[in-house]
Design a protein around this nucleic acid. Structure first.
Lengths: 203, 203
DNA sequence: TTGCGATACGGACCCACGGTCCGTATCTTC
DNA sequence: GAAGATACGGACCGTGGGTCCGTATCGCAA
């Protein structure tokens, strides 16, 4: 077993400072690209190298922020009560999941934008996307319907893309509840049509 | 009237050279980010400034390439025969439009990726997106169904996002025809559910 | 053909930003 | 409190988008 010895006290303090500073800066600025690493280091009262030592690179920092915010949602899904928790039947859980994703991206627009639009790597290569997709796909498979659960899961999740959400909620000024209702309606329509169109269950 | 005098001969020749070089380079490389402006200039046998003079900036160049490829599709939609042309009834034209978009993005993955993922500006602020969205939304409105055509149009188009298409067709190796069939199935399901769920027509 | 203003060329140059290096400071442990 | 390990920080580097300006080319007219 790799017995990782505990890190130095100042290291954890600095890590936390960077974390907080980055969170605040990303929340303030319109577009995530106008926050530079140097900005974050300065705001945290820390040298640039400290920042990179703690998080590897820009993507690593953003991912860390994102994962921290996401943790409670994950917990609610994995072991929480209905309608998000695992005991919920698929027909209710899929809409609940999508609604949770939407709400999360509404509440954390800046981070979601920064992560999904981190240039080089498409959001589809991120591991957390696979997680969501597998979850939705498997729920769809447990429902009667045509055997295209994989694509349908992608398509449903695409409706919650960070930049789309930011565009509608931000630029277009669509209110939160209205967006939620529209996504719910769309999801319901898709599920409804699927259960109606075919009764085969995928292996 | 702004009487724009005609450009010099070498200017148009260079512009064409840059155009061709950029097209070739983007087509060859895996990710559009590994093609630099200097690369394009070199490949075109031209100085960097010439390139920027002709197209403004990176986004301008990519957009010009994209629009050029898109022109035939646009023409087919605006004045072509069925099922893409304006004479087609909405119920058939919406799937046809989405299929055309999908095929276009499959055939021009590199450009679509370069444009949608051009970092700063979300794809939703591009004017061509508004065009597609308005088209789909207006068709949906002409159909009986719930009054959320605007969002539904966004959601349907989101299923054809360039990075999703590239991910499925490229990384996952989903064959072209299978992808088309899946998108068609998804679209049909959405339309089917809409016409079934409500009979109101939006004003 | 030649002369001349207008236009375009090109590559050296600039700047911003992500990421690294290394001499120095701080922590931990004995 | 001394020694070794660990972390600090800001100067530094490479890269890539975008610009500047002295020079070459073009178009036109005489």
């Amino acid at each position: 077993m790799t017995a990782e010895r505990k890190p130095r006290k100042d290291a954890v303090r600095n890590r936390a400072a960077v974390f907080a500073a980055a969170d605040a800066l990303f929340a303030q600025c319109r577009s995530p690209e106008e926050v530079t690493m140097a900005d974050i280091a300065t705001a945290a009262g820390v040298g640039k190298a400290t920042l990179f030592r703690a998080f590897g690179d820009r993507t690593g920092l953003i991912r860390a922020l994102y994962e921290a915010r996401l943790a409670p949602v994950r917990a609610a899904i994995e072991e929480g009560p209905e309608p998000l928790g695992p005991a919920t039947p698929p027909l209710e859980r899929v809409p609940a999941l999508l609604d949770a994703v939407l709400c999360f991206k509404l509440d954390n627009r800046h981070l979601a934008l920064a992560l999904e639009g981190s240039g080089a790597d498409s959001p589809y290569r991120a591991d957390h996307y696979d997680h969501w997709h597998a979850l939705v796909r498997d729920l769809l498979r447990r429902l009667p319907g045509p055997p295209d659960s994989d694509f349908t899961a992608h398509a449903l999740l695409a409706a919650t893309r960070a930049d789309l959400v930011a565009y509608l909620a931000g630029d277009k000024g669509v209110p939160r509840e209205e967006l939620r209702a529209q996504l719910a309606g769309f999801t319901a329509a898709v599920l409804d049509a699927r259960t109606r169109r075919g009764t085969a269950v995928e292996g």
